[in-house]
Design a protein around this nucleic acid. Sequence first.
DNA 1: AAAGAAAAGGGTGTTTTAACGGTATATAGC
DNA 2: GCTATATACCGTTAAAACACCCTTTTCTTT
Lengths: 223, 223
Amino acid sequence: MVTVSPNKIIRIAIADDVPILRKGLILLLNSYKPCGVDIEANNGEELISKIKSAENKPDICILDISMPVMDGYETLSAIKQYWPNIKVVILSVHYNEYTIIRTVREGASCCLPKEVDTDELFTAIKQVHNKGYYHTELVKHYLNNSMYEDVRKLKLNKNEQEFLRLCCSDMSYKQIALQMELSPRTIDGYRDDLFLKLNIKSRSALVMFALQTGLVTSPSEKA
Amino acid sequence: MVTVSPNKIIRIAIADDVPILRKGLILLLNSYKPCGVDIEANNGEELISKIKSAENKPDICILDISMPVMDGYETLSAIKQYWPNIKVVILSVHYNEYTIIRTVREGASCCLPKEVDTDELFTAIKQVHNKGYYHTELVKHYLNNSMYEDVRKLKLNKNEQEFLRLCCSDMSYKQIALQMELSPRTIDGYRDDLFLKLNIKSRSALVMFALQTGLVTSPSEKA
DNA sequence: AAAGAAAAGGGTGTTTTAACGGTATATAGC
DNA sequence: GCTATATACCGTTAAAACACCCTTTTCTTT
């Protein structure tokens, strides 16, 4: 610590690819006395690079999950690897068992849904800064009571990610196998593995999972 | 018109169930001189009731699609029915052919993705107020070139909505039929109808459609 | 009251999905 | 060298999904 003042401001960095939300959040947080937003980025990669070149590192990073280039899951890992002391708050539309367990187990200090009310957001940030964490009832519930035992299994490898992405379409497993240049049997194995890991029984549920966790983002349609 | 001043402010009403986005948007729009936000609501029903009791009706309503109680699609219909002169801007994460065609054909003056950049949002609002509409390239593209000919077919009835909701799960069609107290054949018919209407061939694509259009919202998980 | 449309129910066949049981190979750690 | 682990691969069977053509019932509409 170089300078410590009694009324030190909580330095905040924000990564979110929705400009109106990001700008709004900045106005909102800056209007709240103890906070100051220094860094904003529209994806994880940009955030990491801005933190690297920042003279004063932020106290807290607020991350969205689904962002282009580098998503919130990866960004969280990178931050915790480079700067373990920076606290991370996940603020996302994706708010489910998978997202909560994966991010909190990876070191997030707090995981909130975007539907959070502004007062609770302020409370959360203050408590994260002072106590190191802020867990909602749902987060507490899943921390005590989750079907996912092993964090490592929550991360999907490249092939699994690609498979999951292709599942979100009209393609049959045979066509997916063809596209990925793998045997249909191998694809069956991927599916069976995911069904087991995620405790689901159908491709429909797999699609639900993919979209709800932000692991697959619907292709932003371009004309 | 009761009072017309040369520098009349554009009166805006906002309905969105995400408080931080709503608050942020209000700060943002109020910081833009020609705009003034008078009404905010966290769902369509609340918005309609606030407009009803408002002395001065808004010029423009900004609507989210996926909201509890009354969603953006229904809210748009209601507004256009009661107050055809109020302009509606759809601002949503849901930005696809279905959403664009359905809202614009129903009378929306503008349909924007939440990823819109703040300058474009300001431009859109100004142009909607002056010219009556603002269409992005993607909106223009779909207006000239859509697979949905008939707007009426875009609206799903109660049974179809319920069916679509239940499709987003691990349930088999047989289980869905049981749950809805209808014959499995009838359910098959619903599916075939939707496949035809939406030009898709699999339940996975149906789930994708349901989530991407906001016609089905993932149940917000509660502990 | 008759015609027509829309919704529900039906039969039958093919294709795809899903559950279960396996083997072979590479490679990283002990 | 052995063991654990991850990856790719294989076969069988049952269930579910999907396609196609058809009838009955229930409403609107005229």
